[in-house]
Amino acid sequence: MERREEVSRRPWYQEYLKGLWEENPIFRMLLGMCPTLAVTTSALNGLSMGLATTFVLTSTSLVVSIIRKLVPGQVRIATFTVIIATFVTVADLFLKAKFPAISKALGPYVPLIVVNCFILGRQEVFASKNPTGRSILDALGVGSGFIFALTLLGSIRELLGSGEVFGHEVIPGWHPWVVMILPAGAFLTLGFLVAAMNAIERTK
């Protein structure tokens, strides 16, 4: 019942870089939309959510790639889920203990990292078939892509919604567009960003 190893043959730096652009979880794969739309009301929220998710993704990929040859294929999803859930709870407790303000702002979306589909996706597609080093690079790459996407989304929404970025006034006297902070603003911003990414991709 061993699963065949399908070791990736990219140069090692590509393992990291692909997550930023070609396989960016938000802009290219459109995965993990729930936290993306819900928490990006400000740049800081987006960044914190990105960091928490990257921590969970990287730790899980590390453990999964180490034990990948021991886990029977039939229970792999259950095993991955238990490992993901453990790291999510660790991240949630850590934020509650050390950064209560951020934890409060992110609310239930930290525990909900457990159902973030690209975390399980990376285990299934990559970490369960590749050696530890590559798996960590892959996780860090996809995580960085997620951080980049969430921070960008949060910055745009915060800028248009309140004239600030990371709580610093950028446009003095800006008349806030309340809609940008509301859920509709998330859909609008994401739509325009994905369109922009596709346009750039097409000119290549």
Binding site: V71, V75, I83, A85, L93
Partner: peptide
């Protein structure tokens, strides 16, 4: 299957208690 899930579960439980 049982062994792997048990070991993973025990490790997960222990680290959560510690955290």
């Amino acid at each position: 299957m049982m062994l792997v899930l048990t070991v993973v579960g025990v490790f997960s439980g222990l680290s959560l208690v510690y955290m």
